[in-house]
Nucleic acid binder design. Sequence first.
DNA 1: ATCCTTAAAATGGTTGACCAATTGCCCGTA
DNA 2: TACGGGCAATTGGTCAACCATTTTAAGGAT
Lengths: 229, 229
Amino acid sequence: MLTRLKLAEHDAAAEALSAFIAEGDYAPGDRLPPERELMERLGLSRTNLRKALDTFERDGLIWRHVGKGTFLASQEPDGVGGDLQELCRELSPVKMMRARVCIEAAIAREAAINASNGAIQNLKETKDRARKAASWAEYEHHDGLFHCAVAEATDNPLLLTLFVQLNLVRRAVAVSNVVRGSDRPSEDHKSFAEHERIVAAIEARDPAEAYDAMRAHLGSVSARLFEEA
Amino acid sequence: MLTRLKLAEHDAAAEALSAFIAEGDYAPGDRLPPERELMERLGLSRTNLRKALDTFERDGLIWRHVGKGTFLASQEPDGVGGDLQELCRELSPVKMMRARVCIEAAIAREAAINASNGAIQNLKETKDRARKAASWAEYEHHDGLFHCAVAEATDNPLLLTLFVQLNLVRRAVAVSNVVRGSDRPSEDHKSFAEHERIVAAIEARDPAEAYDAMRAHLGSVSARLFEEA
DNA sequence: ATCCTTAAAATGGTTGACCAATTGCCCGTA
DNA sequence: TACGGGCAATTGGTCAACCATTTTAAGGAT
């Protein structure tokens, strides 16, 4: 099989091009030499050079335009589907909360349609555990489990996966300047009643009510967070 | 900048090739038709076909040998991350569609609230490109771009990331037994009017209508898929 | 001196012809 | 009949010429 030799050749072209760019002290937006010059300087056929350029362009490292030339891309290659860590770094708490409201309310609606009796039982148990929390840290842990239980109640692995991703980001973007007046949530902590309302709506198989209840809950959380910030 | 159009063209070629392979019931090790036949059947120039083939070869999906032909590789590539791969394997198309309806409708609602004028312009352009598609493969590619444009219109990086994940899974779970009565969507293809309704709702800043329009669109897509299965 | 027009040069993109490797068929010989 | 060699057809790979777009320079008019 010659494929490996071909790949090696392509890798050599890509390596040569990559090294050329690195050694050339090019800044984003700078124009690279023309193809016909590049192939000479790198000792490549134009075909092989163009293959390497095709790859670099598809990977967002460069952009090309007939008559203009070949340019180094700006550093953000329209970073769609980029690193989650990067996303967490740049995402504002406001946008994080908006995304939560958008997605978790929709998930609650789906849960009201699809929840099994076992899932509803699980919801109640995690809700009750949150109520019994002896510290804010414990409360927050069980609050997270409660929201996860809602996503599980959709009985949809894809929705659960998306919720988990959302939750990862939420945790990373968590607002850490919250001042607590006590060691633990009080008996009349607003979220308790909100959780009750969510569970009741899901148990009643009322998608619209579940949606509204989750929106109200997260809206309330959001308001509390940004008031105290 | 023409780079997006070029990438779109390459994506169309890759999609067409991918669809051809999927619909052709090829097993690992099977030989694909010769390039000159493939370019005819897919309606591509040889140059564009070879670019797509180059990409597939570099990604390990196929291998090629002068005088012998082009063959499907024996190994599954590491396409999506490990967890997502498992999810794709086990997720039923029905649940995939339910998740799409749940999430994408909520995203459309958010887009109606947050879309900039530029985002709306982008929506219109991708919508129009889908309408002009000359083949089903091209249509499906632009349809995907249209849905991505809706997620971008939310102006929320987290929602966009979640949409991308959803889309990855959607592609992997794609139903491959769709029978087409024609080479390309007809002028009165139902999705065109549905796209129009979605764009109009977002432009009108009407979240509820955007939500309903996207639900209706995806419900319609779903019904079409599962009727013909 | 400045501006406009036109043509030439420069740039990336495409194509048809040709090249290199492989396969299959046909013919000749044992 | 079986085997081997040669040749034509088939296959993917490469290349020079050409194409389409953009930039630059030169010449003419004001």
